[in-house]
């Protein structure tokens, strides 16, 4: 089955003040696949990711130009509702950041702010989201306990469940395993593979092995430029650019 491109950036540029952080990046992100963004620290991966759901606009000195198309619609168009946009594009951050509320309230927060009031309905959403995030069995007996008592790995899966609860189409992950132990990391990786059947996933990672294990496509960034992108096997086995090869073989970065 041929799938189209869910997201496409065209000539995307970001400036922080006078610093040019993303330099004319045009990248296609295929639907229901995992696309990994790799590159040395400070190359603009986070910046690029935050352009997609317009979280970049929270940074005072950031200026964006160019286009980010979601199903062909430029998310930076004047009449785009950023609330509706962020509902379609979920985000999971580097540090697990559950709200200081109960597990249940964490998941129900998103649906509630988008108008779901019915208690039974919320119960179902909470359960399904936790199940899809492979966390249900571990927390079903303590849904009303504070989420901050969970382990780091559980907190991160809770954050994934929280993102799933508003039924997004795309999920952006910014180094989701950076603060986790190997076992938690393996769980999240398996989960991301699983989720890619229903969601378009973009994941920033510093870990080459992780990118190779879980992604279908890989994009390599350096100093704000997109150096090379392609299928993950191609990038890792036959990179076209010398810099890509140097990076993935660990010669710099």
């Amino acid at each position: 089955m041929k799938t189209g491109d869910k997201i496409e950036t065209r000539d995307l540029n970001v400036h922080y003040g006078s610093f040019h952080a993303i330099k004319s990046v045009s990248l296609k992100i295929p639907e229901n696949k995992v696309t990994a963004l790799i590159g040395p620290s400070g190359c603009g991966k986070t910046t690029f990711l935050r352009c997609i759901n317009r979280m970049i606009e929270l940074t005072d000195n950031a200026r964006v130009s160019g286009e980010v198309l979601l199903d062909g619609m430029n998310v930076y168009d004047k009449d785009v509702d950023v609330i509706a946009l962020r509902r379609r594009i979920g985000m999971v951050f580097q540090q697990p950041n559950p709200f200081p509320m109960s597990i249940y309230e964490n998941i129900a927060y998103g649906p509630k702010i988008h108008g779901v009031r019915d208690k039974n309905n919320l119960d179902v959403i909470v359960r399904e989201s936790l199940e899809r995030a492979a966390l249900w069995d571990e927390v079903k007996g303590k849904l009303h306990e504070n989420a901050l008592r969970l382990s780091g790995g559980q907190q991160q899966r809770l954050c994934i469940a929280r993102a799933l609860a508003v039924e997004p189409e795309v999920i952006l992950f910014d180094e989701p395993c950076a603060s986790l132990d190997p076992i938690s990391t393996a769980k999240i990786e398996a989960l991301i593979r699983e989720l890619s059947r229903d969601y378009t996933i973009v994941i920033v990672t510093h870990n080459m092995h992780q990118a190779a294990r879980i992604s279908d496509y890989t994009a390599f960034f350096m100093l704000g430029e997109l150096i090379e992108c392609g299928s993950t096997p191609q990038i890792f086995e036959k990179p076209k650019d010398k810099r890509t090869e140097a990076y993935i073989t660990g010669r710099f970065g």
């Binding site: 509706a84 702010i113 929280r162």
Partner: peptide, 18 residues
């Protein structure tokens, strides 16, 4: 209040006031 709480909420599509 940590910035990460605000970001989590906004990323879910909450308004500033919410």
């Amino acid at each position: 209040v940590p910035r990460s709480y605000r970001e989590a909420s906004l990323a879910l599509g909450a308004t500033k006031w919410t």
